[in-house]
């Protein structure tokens, strides 16, 4: 296989709301929620931010590291469950904003929280087949949650972008392999005109998240003949902190392998941006030669697994754009009423 990441970029809005601020409004027990979900606070989009604006900044950061002409992008795919339009592509807005010209194929993808990694696989295929020179895959979301729903503590905003290319000399990380595990599972959904998603409560655990993440990971390890101990880093989709930690334990991964990518505790679940942001955070730090496992999860359900190996070029490129942590450190806390305005629950 010959595909690698030639540029990557992250973006997280500056606004945050603490779990305790939300809990206070609903009379919930903050301690129980923070202990249960492992989420202290989550990112919230600015009043002028949406999936398109998040995708653009992440894409610009990826371009800054890739040092390629945006017009050489042959494909742009934006994965999200909160595309600004039901009909009219986010990908076209991104293409215009980054100066990709007009000669590229584009589409928006949707697969709950794994729409971004699905986009990454699509770019890999196009690059590997020689159909395009570079492909841009983005996972970004301003996740919705009904006020008062358990999801309100985790549904966050952020995104990550990856430029995929086939020239080994341009890789910051090689994508060694990928595979997926997909089924028809009703754990979380949103009908066309509903403003907020719904979920099947505890059903989202064992038969949904765990089954798909574990099966995709096992398939990936079998396919690549690798063991958990062969990885320096592992990123599992993070709907909360408890699930990825439990999944890692079941699979035999250790805290030192997953702690760097586990940003859910600080910013919440950025849905399509979630495991991609875990990966950008690891790429911000990983040394050449490091091996990374990334496993996404999208309700409905499916998991995409990737094995990556960091290349030496990353050392001179990662400083060309803001790091994931730069965005994580920049924060302004909101009160619940301000949060409601940011989420357009009140106008």
């Amino acid at each position: 296989m010959t595909a690698g990441i030639v540029g990557y970029g992250a973006y997280i809005p500056k606004y945050r709301i603490k779990a305790e601020t939300i809990a206070r409004v609903w009379g919930a027990d903050t301690r129980r929620i923070v202990d249960g979900l492992g989420i202290q606070e989550k990112s919230v989009p600015g009043k002028d931010e949406d999936t398109a604006t998040i995708a653009v900044e992440a894409a610009r950061n990826a371009l800054a590291r890739a040092l390629i002409n945006p017009k050489d992008l042959g494909a742009i795919y934006v994965g999200s469950e909160s595309h600004p339009y039901a009909v009219k592509p986010t990908a076209g807005i991104v293409g215009e904003a980054i100066g990709a010209g007009n000669h590229y194929t584009a589409a928006d993808t949707e697969f709950a929280c794994k729409a971004g990694t699905a986009a990454l696989q699509m770019c890999m295929g196009l690059v590997q087949s020689g159909m395009i020179k570079y492909g841009l895959a983005i996972g970004a979301d301003t996740s919705q949650a009904a006020p008062g729903d358990a999801l309100e503590y985790s549904a966050a905003a952020g995104g990550a972008a990856f430029i995929v290319g086939s020239q080994e000399s341009e890789w910051l990380a090689e994508i060694k392999d990928t595979c997926s595990f997909t089924s028809d599972t009703p754990d979380f959904w949103r009908r066309g005109l509903s403003p907020h998603p719904r979920h099947a409560g505890r059903f989202t655990g064992e038969p949904a998240y765990f089954k798909h993440v574990l099966q995709a990971t096992k398939a990936m390890l079998d396919k690549t003949h690798l063991q958990p101990t062969d990885f320096d880093y592992a990123v599992f989709h993070m709907p909360n902190a408890k699930f990825p930690i439990a999944a890692a334990a079941k699979l035999g991964f250790k805290p030192e392998q997953y702690k760097d990518g586990l940003l859910v505790t600080a910013i919440g679940n950025t849905y399509s941006g979630c495991s991609p942001l875990g990966l950008t955070k690891v790429l911000d730090k990983a040394r050449p030669g490091a091996r990374i496992l990334v496993v996404s999860y999208g309700s409905g359900s499916g998991s995409d697994a990737f094995v990556l190996e960091v290349k030496p070029l990353i050392e001179e490129r990662r400083g060309l754009a803001r790091r994931t942590e730069d965005y994580m450190k920049r924060k302004t806390y909101l009160e619940y009423a301000q949060y409601s305005k940011h989420m357009e629950e009140i106008h």
Binding site: G46, A52, T53, E57, P84, Y85, R330
Partner: peptide, 25 residues
């Protein structure tokens, strides 16, 4: 300069995007 949303042409209308500026951090 940053890329941001400006306004929507009503509840069901088109969204308008453009450039704003933010403090350098």
């Amino acid at each position: 300069a940053v890329f941001r949303k400006f306004y929507a042409s009503g509840e069901t209308g088109v969204l308008h995007y453009g450039t704003k500026f933010r403090p350098v951090f």
